[in-house]
Amino acid sequence: MSGPGNQALNINSVVGQHANLEITNHGSNWYYAVCALMGACTLLFMGLSFTKPQGDRLFHYITAGITGVACIAYYAMGSNLGQVPIQAEFIRPGSRWVGSAGTREIFYARYLDWVVTTPLLLLDLLLTAGVPTPTILVTLLADEIMIITGLIGALTQTRFKWGFWAFGTAALLFIAYELLFDARRHASTLGGDAKKTFMLCGNFLIFLWFLYPIAWGLSEGGNVIHPDGEAIFYGVLDILSKPVFGLLLILGHRKISSSQLGLRIRNRSHIASEKYNPGAGVQPEGPGANVGGSAPTTGGHPTATHTHV
């Protein structure tokens, strides 16, 4: 029951069906606090984008988008919306945390958040490492499989939910391989600040992501911890993997230009140049120019490859 300061649970008790086991006022307050933090970080990242030239703001915009979407999702969860009651596989009548409740609240709003934000997190990392486009696409596909199977498993009432958990974990292992081995090699080719930023943020993120299947097993999967505990577990992980990760990444990109990563981002000056000099292409500069894959050679010298953005 909501206290005098937060009436969200009372007001929205008439919206949809509700589970026997759902968040209390404490969980709602926590979700709202995380919502506020995500919103503040979105404004911070957008503000920091003005410290970079317009053509070098891609990572600021991606990172601000991550926290912006998360802000909306946490507002929904704090309001006890975007949820459905699902019969728990394990009732656990002897537990002081979950009691003998038959249905448990499942927030599909959380997965709608992840299906948008987790590919953006990977995009931040893979573009920083100068990974080729085909590798980026297959890694993002694995990420979507991971999130969607997690959602289907959470909404499944029988033990077959663990099959979806296994599929999602397998996708996570593939993502970990791409970050820890393949993308690492590309980042090493770049060297400098790009390599340092990728190594720090990549290792940090993949460590956190391996804790999410544990949180899932204790909450949506195994019905071991109360939804308030679930809120804290996922909330702390999301704070670390979105605002904290984002701040580390943005700070790491202070001295990195898009051209160093093999990215070709057209701005007004480039468009004007190409208009009056149709044969003049804008080529990237710096050590990242050839990171996009095997470059064709002309007279024994590699020609620059780049990604158009």
Rank of each mutant, 00 (worst) to 15 (best):
L125K: 00
K195I: 03
L211W: 12
P287W: 07
Y31V: 02
N29M: 06
A183G: 04
E89D: 11
L179E: 04
T63D: 06
T189S: 11
L37E: 08
K52E: 03
I239V: 11
R264W: 06
Q260P: 01
G292V: 02
V14R: 15
G27Y: 13
I232T: 09
G55P: 00
P227I: 02
T51C: 05
G221R: 02
H26L: 07
G202N: 02
P243G: 03
R57G: 09
V282M: 03
G262S: 06
D124P: 01
V282T: 13
K195T: 06
V69Y: 07
R185D: 13
P287G: 11
E230C: 04
G5I: 08
N290G: 12
L127G: 04
V116T: 14
W165N: 09
L81I: 08
F164T: 09
V15Q: 10
T303S: 14
T42H: 03
L58Y: 09
H26Y: 09
K52D: 04
N20V: 09
G246S: 08
E230T: 13
E105D: 15
V138Q: 04
A272N: 02
L81C: 07
V98I: 14
K161D: 10
R266F: 11
V282R: 07
N10P: 13
S259R: 01
Y108P: 09
G16F: 09
L126I: 02
I86G: 09
A36K: 01
E89Y: 15
G99W: 14
S294W: 11
P278V: 06
L112A: 13
G299L: 14
A109L: 09
R184D: 09
L43S: 03
V84Y: 11
S219K: 00
H186W: 10
V309G: 03
A187S: 12
C201G: 04
V34M: 05
T117N: 06
S2H: 15
H306P: 00
W162L: 14
V115C: 05
I147E: 03
L263C: 00
S79W: 01
H308E: 11
G150D: 12
E89R: 10
R264A: 05
N25E: 12
H60G: 00
R159C: 08
D143S: 15
E144R: 03
F164N: 06
K255T: 14
E274F: 06
I256W: 03
V116D: 05
S257R: 12
N12T: 15
N12H: 15
M1P: 15
E274C: 01
H18W: 15
V282I: 12
L127D: 08
I256G: 02
F50C: 01
G99A: 12
G202F: 00
I106C: 10
S28W: 12
L151W: 15
G5M: 11
Y61L: 11
L21S: 14
L247S: 07
P243V: 00
Y276Q: 05
I148D: 06
L21Q: 14
Y74Q: 07
A142V: 04
G78W: 06
G82W: 03
G39I: 06
G39R: 05
T158E: 10
